[in-house]
Write a protein that binds this DNA or RNA. Sequence first.
RNA 1: GCCGCUUUAGCUCAGUCGGUAGAGCACAUCAUUCGUAAUGAUGGGGUCAGAGGUUCGAAUCCUCUAAGCGGCACCA
Length: 661
Amino acid sequence: MLKISLPDGSVREMPKGSTPADVAAAIGPGLAKAAIAARVDGELVDLSRPFTGDAALALVTSRDEAEALDLARHDFAHVLAEAVQSLFPGTQITFGPSTDDGFYYDFAPKGRQFTDDDLPAIEAEMRRIISADKPLRREAIERDELIAQWRAAGESFKAEWAAELPQGEELSVYHSGNDWYDMCRGPHLPSTGKLDPAAFKLTRVSGAYWRGDQNNAMLSRIYGTGWLNKKQLEAHLVRLEEAGKRDHRKLGQEMDLFHLQAEAHGSVFWHPNGFKVWRELEAYMRRAIDAADYKEVKTPQIMDARQWEQSGHWGKYRENMFVIPDEVPNVDDVGPVISGEADWMALKPMNCPAHVLIFRQGIKSYRDLPLRIYENGCCHRNEPHGALHGLMRVRQFTQDDAHIFCREDQIVEEVRSFCALADRVYKDFGFTYAIKLALRPENRFGSEEMWDQAETELRHAVAAAGLNTAEYGWAELPGEGAFYAPKLEWHLTDAIGRTWQVGTIQSDRVLPERLDASYVGEDGGKHRPVMLHRAIFGSYERFIGILIEHFAGKLPVWLAPVQAVVAPIVSEVDGYAREVASQLKAAGIRVESDLRNEKINYKVREHSLAKVPHLLVVGKREAEEGTVAIRTLGEERQRFMPLAEAITMLQGEATPPDLRA
RNA sequence: GCCGCUUUAGCUCAGUCGGUAGAGCACAUCAUUCGUAAUGAUGGGGUCAGAGGUUCGAAUCCUCUAAGCGGCACCA
């Protein structure tokens, strides 16, 4: 007999060969029905997996939501694969995991790729398989035998994969009924009928490279979202819809902030409203860097290719650079082809080399360090076309970029104080964040010792700032550093839980070396400074995009392009409305007046949709009393107050957070 | 760059079987002076993304190009 201990401390004796399902049945029919998997000695396994000895057992039911969701999504992926192979014979299966909100499966289709139009039929077939309540049965199988089976079945991707698993390893396949199986580690639900046929939806198709490598075959990926029940699915679809309403591209158009067009694709046309937000951010950042003893500079947009060669960008980054010939073209030659030998220039993709060139002017002493050089640096990068996305990924952008030149022994303190500065900034905008350390990538400059040292310093600095904790989502990301330095990364969490990588600080010894930056030390000798690359917003474009989505367009008053609109009810009080507007303007409020011959309902609607924070309505009563009726965005009530009081209130709200008492 | 889809008025979109382009909003003019999410009437506005092809005839079918969207890959 086996001794099976349960979470409540009790122990059950079970015959050899029995399974978690047998224990569930022994406890009661209700539990037997509710159980979907088992945790045996901490490991999640099938209900039908026989015990191999005495064990601690915890039965998993749909109340264990995290496990249940993952199991269900994994099963949905299998059902999807089975459905596709049944509808499209000859399609090869490859790989299909669960995701944060559902699942996907990658197929190598026969003939053509799948399209959205295929989804309804596949969904219907999936529902049929679920309704058929097919038992999911695990079978252990020896590796070479499975490879032979996959080859015989024409499943070359599966065979390739199995062939890379260790020789002689026992693998497992899961059978769905008697007519379909897939290689899988498991575990799975006992049968397809445990899935709710109304709790999933196929959402889109896309291409995906086999094993994520663009040199490999392009597969056809089908995405779905999957849940435990219909209610959860519907709640998820509502969340998607809400997220769609925050889309900065849509809000940017509605609020007349900016536009993009084909003739300058990947570059932003900032409209007057959008640029007001930009200017407010720029002013905020200037106050921050002035207070932190940075020196602001402005450097050339275009530099000679030889300079980029020396910095290493020509070798490592040229694919992403806009390169132009350095010659005055003969007017007659200016046509589709520019021929002849040309020296090359390139638009800067980064500001760092230019900042080193400023550092190099004149002799620097150790007394000058740390020297913090800041620039609102406009960079151009020729990004892969498929990567462009609204304000989030553009080809021309402006970074809040700075480079701190310092001695080795100043690194930890500089990084620590940067952490404090970044913390202050993100809190001013209402974000929480996580910090990650991106470690050396494969494609890199510099020695192993240098990377060891740089990575260790950043770890120390984060520890000194007390940020290497779970609270700050501390994690290390192997292989994700820049080609010249490891990076600390700040990942913001927005109002609906999405994360955005914005800020970074990187400790770099490569560029000072390549561009021969040096300072005179206390010993009178020449020394190499370390260069810390750092940004907080990342880029103005992207940061504004994130702000728009975070606030769903309802920017805080200090950032709102138009902070208040004065709207008279009858034209008789236009004069008073003008007076109100002019007093607000004199008080530094970004105000507009809406004197159009429209009903107040119309004006309320229009300015609400435009997300103006405060609408100041004035009628005969207000004009007589010298008051205003304030309607604040998102509220239906009105507040009546004397004009002077309203001005004080608006001034308070319009004060940037760093200037508040 | 790769896979799929899309592109019609300033915006959102309709346009059947290939027969010569429509709505709402916006805009303009006129009327209306109104108390918190759309006042009414009238009017102007289109090389149907671009190029080529099939056809008596193309927004519609085919090819190419460009851009956009969703992913993949990329992301200092």
